[in-house]
């Protein structure tokens, strides 16, 4: 590994100052499960690594009246072990439970997953589905960007050199809502998604009609995608196979998968359809109160 300097600020302003001072040659470190490997292979060669784990704002995990706040450095194990997340933001718990193995989850954060901006990052479609908002701090102040607009290309995102992702905020969950994240991987664990789908669904009181839906897709384009039309076409519809089939077709329209060692383009298109349907089915069941315990990989 190349030589670099290391700082571990405990105050947000200090971290931002260090970032600003380094003219783009610094990299923030949260769990390090992507960054350390990328430095080892030479993909990233920052001169300064800023360990932001000790900054309080980046470690919050709070569910309050205004929704859920997940600090950018909060490790996955805390997120998927949190009762509120499991209960109301289930897609996020689903994702955090399958990012890497247990050892990775001890360190990896959803903020890091977002900032790594891989097309297949597991937490991102879940956060898109839950309409997450990225809270970004910079020397000029704070701005907010929807998770769906955060990534701009493989490994690229909206962050300027002097900006830091502080937290991801999720709006409060309506009653009769449910969500799910699921991916297709060749093994049952320890794999990168061939396709990943997150969805959130809200039903009317009777549980028969979809009043809101949001779908995120992973590994089927240069960035994780918001399948906006697929979600919209569900709204106002009664729950039926035909309704879900419309969403499947709409989701397939926006994807542009590639063939690589994880799967062929054709396969990814097909699997996107299968998973959108399955994930919606589970999200709908959860909206009706059925917890739908899933066995990862199966």
């Amino acid at each position: 590994m190349h030589a670099f300097d290391y700082k571990s600020p405990e105050v947000l302003a200090e971290a931002l100052q260090q970032l600003a001072d380094s003219d783009g040659s610094a990299k923030p470190l949260a769990g390090g499960t992507d960054l350390i490997d990328q430095m080892r292979t030479g993909r990233h060669q920052p001169t300064l690594v800023i360990d932001i784990k000790k900054v309080a704002e980046l470690n919050v995990l709070e569910c309050a009246g205004d929704g859920l706040h997940v600090g950018a450095a909060t490790p996955c194990y805390r997120i998927c072990g949190d009762d509120n997340v499991q209960q109301d933001y289930t897609a996020l718990a689903d994702a955090c439970n399958i990012i890497g193995g247990v050892q990775i989850q001890s360190r990896a954060s959803v903020g890091g997953n977002l900032c790594n901006s891989g097309p297949a990052g597991d937490s991102i479609p879940a956060m898109i589905a839950l309409r997450g908002i990225c809270v970004i701090a910079g020397s000029a102040g704070t701005r907010e960007v929807p998770v769906a607009e955060f990534c701009t290309g493989p490994g690229q995102n909206v962050l300027a050199d002097n900006e830091l992702l502080v937290e991801i905020r999720f709006p409060p969950r309506p009653t009769a809502s449910g969500s799910h994240y699921r991916r297709m991987i060749p093994r049952n664990e320890m794999d990168i998604a061939v396709v990943g789908v997150g969805a959130s669904v809200t039903l009317n009181e009777a549980g028969t009609t979809i009043t809101d839906a949001c779908i995120g897709l992973g590994a089927v384009g240069p960035t994780p995608l918001l399948a906006a039309r697929a979600g919209e076409c569900l709204v106002g519809q009664t729950v039926s196979d035909a309704t879900l089939a419309n969403a499947v077709e709409a989701a397939k329209e926006i994807i542009s998968p590639i063939t690589d060692m994880r799967g062929t383009q054709e396969y990814r298109v097909h699997v996107t359809g299968v998973l959108v349907r399955r994930v919606l089915e589970t999200a709908i069941s959860r909206a009706t109160g059925d917890p739908c315990v899933v066995r990862p990989g199966h």
């Binding site: 290391y6 571990s8 390090g32 350390i36 490997d37 784990k53 194990y77 247990v102 001890s106």
Partner: peptide, 17 residues
């Protein structure tokens, strides 16, 4: 590390402070 299993190849030594 601090009660949680980690892969030590993905932790910097300086983080162990």
């Amino acid at each position: 590390m601090n009660g949680h299993a980690v892969v030590s190849c993905l932790v910097l030594g300086v983080e162990a402070e």
